[in-house]
Amino acid sequence: MKFVGTGSTSGLPPSDTRPEGNSWEHFHHEADVGIRGWGATPAAAFAAAAEAMMAVILAAPHRVEPRETATISCRAADLELLFYDWLNDLLWEMDTGGRVYRRFEVTIAENREGFSLTAVIVGEPLDRRRHRPVVEVKGATFTALAVRGRDDGSWLAQCVVDV
């Protein structure tokens, strides 16, 4: 088994303008929103992208308190499908549990069948007043879906989400 790495996010304040040090951004799509995260490993990029998605759903994602944890695990033949599953499983957890999340501790491992992901997600029940929800994300999509290494050795994970 090849170890692909772990990554987590610190819950930095969100910003569309991506201040120095932030590890995610939103990118243009005519009707919806693109989310992009990056980090030292694919897992770190996945975690940062989840933070980008939370910043689509909430106007104040930085106000989510780390009170509860849940786990997500999924597997896929390639990293792009794994990224699609990761975000959609996260949406399912949020929708069915009425919860929002701030910290994402992602571990990805490679095996003979492809890749497997386990994640501990940390957050709390949605509080409309404090978290200021903006819009539901219906699903992470295949549009502009990419997980790839960058020239500087870091990883990028991105796709458009349907709102």
Binding site: A77, L81, Y84, D85, N88, L91, W92, D95, T96, K138, G139, A140, T141, F142
Partner: peptide, 17 residues
């Protein structure tokens, strides 16, 4: 609502493979 979103998500993935 959520049911339609989930069906779309699952079958998009299944059809892609």
């Amino acid at each position: 609502r959520g049911l339609g979103h989930q069906i779309g998500t699952e079958f998009l993935r299944e059809m892609a493979t």
